[in-house]
Design a protein around this nucleic acid. Structure first.
Lengths: 167, 167
DNA sequence: TAAGATTGATCTATCAATCTTA
DNA sequence: TAAGATTGATAGATCAATCTTA
């Protein structure tokens, strides 16, 4: 009997006590950590999590610009999500959109000067918050374990997490 | 020099290579895991993540009912978030709200028969998804490590994560 | 006054439908 | 036809203001 069959048979069993505790702890930790990081980011820079993700991705590009298609692949976002987000950020003056020379269907997204200034501030706040609430409270072993765990889970998700990016 | 001072001084340094990798992996894993769990839940039961959290909390109560105040403490949600969510769920027929006998300000939230039927299905789907995408892909050591890491981070958040629950 | 809860406004996320160009 | 992108509708999350009762 293959281990796959064993696992399939186990998939509908209720969680064991330890599994349940681990899951509930992880779930709660994850949502609270996200919440506090988001609040500290907003307080320090005025950027939301979504605005920060877009701006930070642009900041690390040469010329602080990128095709919307590539930005979407970088963030692994749905296209409508990115489109709505870019509209709001353009209204706020954080980015601007221009036509793409090589492909008339495309859009080039570029950080404005104001956007650059703000996202640099936001990065400092984010690093500080990550140190305060995650990296600073974990041992080196724990951080290495978290990295390994994340890699493992991501690798297995590779197959399952694609569908929502098709459209 | 205390370790606290050392840590404070370190808080504004940029992340090291390993720290950066660990953080980015964790962040991406976390958002994708959440995404796939949510999609599988919705596909199997028709419930959203938010609807599931409320329904599952009610299901484990005697009589499948709870005061809104206690439900809020159970979920650690803002009160306006819960209120809006309950309105939508009442419209969908998943829960009903009745007056509280002991305190006229209070509201009792109760799963409907339809709500019970749906959340039982949803729990099966959720357990299955957790096994498939998280517990089933980690070793026993990794799962124990994740549990410990989550506990550590949660413990430190205890101080910092309260403010948004005040109102 | 403070606690429990609701409401309205705004921002975000997802889905389906659409528009334009390759 | 398919790819790149936008739009509209709907559900969810957060903030400030409000209402009622303890």
């Amino acid at each position: 009997m293959s281990t796959d069959l064993v696992r399939d048979a186990a998939e509908h069993r209720a969680l064991s006590g330890e599994e349940e505790v681990a899951w509930r702890r992880y779930y709660r930790m994850q949502s609270h950590l996200l919440g506090v990081l988001n609040r500290e980011l907003t307080q320090a820079s005025g950027l939301s999590e979504a605005e920060y993700e877009v701006s930070a991705a642009l900041l690390q590009q040469p010329g602080h610009k990128l095709r919307a298609r590539e930005l979407r692949r970088e963030l692994l976002w749905e296209k409508s999500r990115l489109s709505h987000q870019l509209r709001r950020m353009e209204q706020r003056g954080l980015i601007r959109r221009t036509d793409c020379a090589e492909d008339s269907r495309g859009a080039i997204v570029e950080l404005t000067a104001a956007g650059r200034r703000i996202v640099v501030q936001a990065e400092c706040a984010r690093v500080s918050a990550i140190r305060t609430h995650l990296i600073g409270v974990l041992s080196e072993n724990q951080l290495a374990a978290l990295s390994g765990i994340s890699e493992t889970v991501l690798h297995h998700l590779g197959i399952a997490c694609a569908p929502h990016l098709d459209g």
